[in-house]
């Protein structure tokens, strides 16, 4: 399968995303709304539920299923309020000593006048900065498209699980092709050179675990994801808080050194 095939799969409207897996894996999930500052961003949804009987905070990017819902959720492109809601829920998780699971799948941060006026860059920056200090384990699961800084704002973590048909890129292949060759239809070539597949990220020590989807149903994949999450969170819970935070920094510190 080519890199661009994976991009297409990762973006596919029929692909199960974070909300589906939360439904499969997490019991008694309760969603919480709003950033307490300005609005509730539908492109990011989060709340608390039980993973094997233990409370966890789950935060996911969400694009919606119907066209109406997609428009309401801005096609999964978060606004500053989405990132601020996510941060609020992470701090809540920290207060109540429960791990955080973030699900990634978004074309990128929303770009528009309002998003700039309300500090899209600042909101992402603040999440990156704050997440290096959140005193509970953070596991990120990359399911769909990891679209640049907008995806990174939920990706500072202790362990990153990546689906083998998910991608993560500094720029969309279309954007890259139009800069490189002034032709966005050359996106497949761009996808190859950008090194955005799960294998690429695993090879660069960014992704820690790859989930091989294979020819399985999403329900079957969810069973394996639950096992992986249980294992990763179990490992991280054994670390002292100073050790946890030091190794989180170390994980990113060694990228491209």
């Amino acid at each position: 399968m080519s890199a661009y095939d994976k991009v297409t799969l990762a973006r596919s409207s029929s692909r199960a995303m974070g909300s589906f897996y939360i439904g499969q894996i997490i019991d008694d999930f309760v969603e919480f709304h709003g950033d307490r500052r300005f609005a509730d961003d539908g492109a990011i949804c989060g709340g608390v539920g039980l993973l094997n009987g233990e409370p966890v905070t789950c935060i996911t990017m969400k694009r919606g299923d119907t066209l109406e819902e997609r428009m309401a959720r801005n096609f999964g492109c978060p606004s500053p309020e989405g990132y601020r809601k996510a941060l609020r829920l992470m701090k809540q998780a920290e207060k109540f000593h429960r791990p955080v699971i973030c699900f990634i799948g978004s074309p990128g941060a929303y770009c528009g006048i309002g998003a700039e006026e309300r500090g899209q860059g600042q909101a992402i920056a603040e999440n990156l900065w704050e997440m290096f200090g959140i005193r509970v384990p953070i596991v990120t699961v990359v399911i769909g498209e990891g679209g640049s800084g907008g995806a990174l704002a939920l990706s500072v973590c202790d362990s990153m699980i990546m689906f083998d048909n998910a991608v993560y890129s500094v720029i969309s292949p279309e954007g890259c092709a139009s800069i490189l060759w002034k032709d966005s239809s050359k996106a497949p070539e761009a996808a190859e050179v950008l090194r955005l597949t799960a294998e690429d990220l695993y090879g660069m020590d960014i992704a820690d675990v790859i989930l091989h989807e294979g020819y399985r149903t999403e329900e079957e994949i969810a069973v394996e994801l639950k096992e992986m999450l249980t294992k990763e969170i179990g490992k991280l819970k054994r670390l002292s808080t100073p050790r946890l935070l030091a190794s989180r920094y170390e994980k990113f510190r060694k990228i491209g050194n």
């Binding site: 290096f132 990174l152 890129s169 500094v170 989180r248 920094y249 510190r253 990228i255």
Partner: peptide
């Protein structure tokens, strides 16, 4: 912004530096 020519490694520098700023 991030340098396209180094792919996702460039993107991750945002996180790496943010960690150093935090410490």
């Amino acid at each position: 912004g991030a340098r396209m020519q180094e792919g996702v490694l460039s993107l991750m520098q945002m996180a790496k530096i943010s960690g150093a700023v935090r410490w």
